[in-house]
Simulated scan of single mutants.
Amino acid sequence: MVKIESIIQEFYEKEEGWKIQVFVASCAERMVQLFTGVVGADPSRSQDVELVLRCMDLLWSPDSNKPWALVAEEIYLLPELAGDEEPPGLLLYAYNAAAALYYATKYREAGDLESVISCCNHALNSAEFISEQLDDGVDRFIIEVERQKNDIEELCKFKSPDKGEVVGFMRGRGQVVGREILADLLGR
């Protein structure tokens, strides 16, 4: 990995916990549209889409004291995460999005570095798979590494006591990027 794990570890060790929470939320936000865009095409999965969107809202609340173990369990029960193997086709992207979301919630539950890295790795895997599938010469893995580095840099620079400012900025940016990633995948 392009040294991103060591950058994440240093960030984890030096920064306040709420900044790590925002970091994993940002990573999950970029991925979540791969879930909603793929799974949302099936009307019978509307409850799963709603669950994922509710979870995403919770992740963007740095001061939330939700029972994160229960939230993680709900995400873990999604069909994409239920099997022993990764699903085929477009559902592979929904799997990686659900897994990123799961590890973001696990971080909120336990506060552990392993969950942060797992969340980020699923975003990186998905980026790499999209590049392989589209075969258009764009290295989305490197782009995602840069996005993660940029998130860390932004959060390290942030010194205001108003968390809402950085949360709003990063969530908005994550949503825009998530739409772009889905559009690339679906060829729009």
Rank of each mutant, 00 (worst) to 15 (best):
L58Y: 06
V167H: 07
D112V: 06
V39M: 14
Y107V: 01
V177C: 08
A69W: 10
P62C: 07
Y76P: 00
D135C: 10
Y93D: 06
E85P: 00
G164Q: 13
E109G: 01
I20N: 02
I181G: 01
Q21R: 13
R188Q: 10
Q21L: 00
L91P: 06
E10Y: 00
P79E: 12
G111Q: 02
E13A: 11
P88C: 09
S44K: 13
I8G: 05
E154R: 11
S6E: 15
L91V: 04
E146C: 02
A69Y: 12
E13C: 06
G172R: 07
P43E: 14
N125P: 00
L53G: 01
E15R: 03
L59D: 04
C119R: 02
R188T: 04
L70P: 00
M170D: 00
E13H: 08
S6A: 11
L91A: 06
E146T: 07
D135L: 01
T105I: 04
E132M: 14
V166N: 05
G111A: 03
S118A: 15
R173D: 01
I143A: 14
D136W: 11
L92W: 07
Y95I: 01
Q133V: 10
E153A: 11
S61C: 13
P67R: 12
A104T: 10
S160Y: 04
T105L: 03
K159I: 11
E128Y: 09
D57W: 05
D42T: 11
I152A: 01
L134V: 03
P62S: 05
P43S: 14
E154P: 00
A69S: 11
K3L: 11
S61N: 12
E85L: 12
L185D: 04
S118K: 13
E146R: 08
A82S: 14
E114H: 08
N150R: 12
Y76E: 15
G111V: 02
L58D: 13
E154S: 02
A110H: 08
S160N: 12
K66Q: 10
N96S: 12
Y102V: 02
C55F: 06
V22T: 10
D57M: 01
E146A: 13
I8A: 04
V2F: 13
L101V: 08
C27K: 05
M170G: 00
E165F: 12
G40D: 04
A183R: 13
Q175V: 10
G172V: 06
L101P: 05
G37V: 11
